[in-house]
Write a protein that binds this DNA or RNA. Structure first.
Lengths: 181, 181
DNA sequence: CTATAATTATTGTTATAACAACTAATTTGG
DNA sequence: CCAAATTAGTTGTTATAACAATAATTATAG
């Protein structure tokens, strides 16, 4: 059988930013039976591409933040003093995931954990000054991506699209409406 | 600050199968500004929920296969003798990812790598008998999930939904049409 | 009030994803 | 034909996700 790893000169195992597309262009040439009409496959890949676009844009602008870190950072920004459990609910991430994302954001001085006054099990979460300084930039980068991804969709198409996504979420019995009390 | 890990009796850090929803239900009570109207956030979470539904269904039925392994397995099934590079293109995964997923599928005896006759760098990929035996079961599980997720969408709604997803993919310059030559 | 249960957060494990770097093998260019 | 470039696949690193299990703390039951 083939070997275990060696090398050559130009392996483009991972597309970078703009070249990233090459690989995708290359091999997609046969015909799927199961996949070609699979909404799930298309849904998953579209979401993945959007995430990748965000990741690359951040990196391209010189920021190390990731899409998930961006989500958590924004959730903290919009609810300063929130605890990790509630943050998990808001971001639809589980608590270990939130813990680790916060570890990174804290190490990068974008957020701070402060002890909960009443309940010593909890942290209250806040943006640092650096977090506040950077979040606007991050959000403008994301806005650009949103324009690129969704800019040519009509209001109606966007509305229908989001409605369908919500319906699918409901079908899967997951909460997605981001407010309540 | 809070400590570094200890315990109690009932931590439900991760929702299991059916209870999984609880956490989501719990904390989503404030109001997002950035997220509440974000198609990207909704898109990403919906795709994630669908993946989770698959993962749990497989596990619930006693199978260890994951959604991504399922995708790769099906791609092999539909293109026996395909090489890893082309498989990466078909599944829209990068080559290291495909390598590692195949490692797992091979260890679980669902697929086999055979040396490429002409080019000794390449493997040709095939289902094993066990792979063939199980794939129908896997696919029927996925069909059930598709019915659950999309079953109450009309033909027109599904068609519009997929069209919009394709448009977004195009906007992001990624290939998603799974055939060509 | 104290033993038990419940809750918040953390850590460990495995899988996926992106990307860099690298090996073996093949192709190209001269 | 041989050196250089290319290609197929692998490995390493970091981040996210799911889930199990646990520590510290708080709430509840009796």
């Amino acid at each position: 059988m083939p070997r275990k790893t060696e090398q050559s000169s130009t392996d483009f195992t991972h597309p970078t930013l703009d070249e990233g597309i090459e690989m995708l262009e290359k091999a997609s040439r046969l015909t799927f039976r199961i996949f070609e009409n699979s909404a799930g496959f298309l849904l998953n890949n579209t979401a993945g591409r959007l995430r990748l676009e965000m990741l690359r844009s951040f990196k391209f602008r010189g920021y190390t933040i990731t899409p998930d870190q961006w989500v958590v950072l924004n959730a903290v920004a919009e609810h300063e003093g929130i605890c990790q459990r509630d943050l998990a609910g808001k971001t639809l991430k589980d608590r270990p995931t939130v813990t680790r994302i916060l570890d990174i954001l804290e190490a990068n001085r974008l957020i701070a954990r402060r002890p909960g006054t009443d309940d010593r099990r909890m942290f209250k979460l806040y943006l640092t000054d650096e977090g506040k300084k950077n979040i606007e930039t991050f959000n403008s980068i994301v806005s650009e991506i949103d324009r690129k991804a969704f800019g040519n969709l009509s209001e109606q198409e966007m509305s229908r699209f989001k409605k369908t996504l919500s319906k699918i979420m409901d079908n899967l019995e997951a909460r997605h409406t981001l407010d309540e009390s």
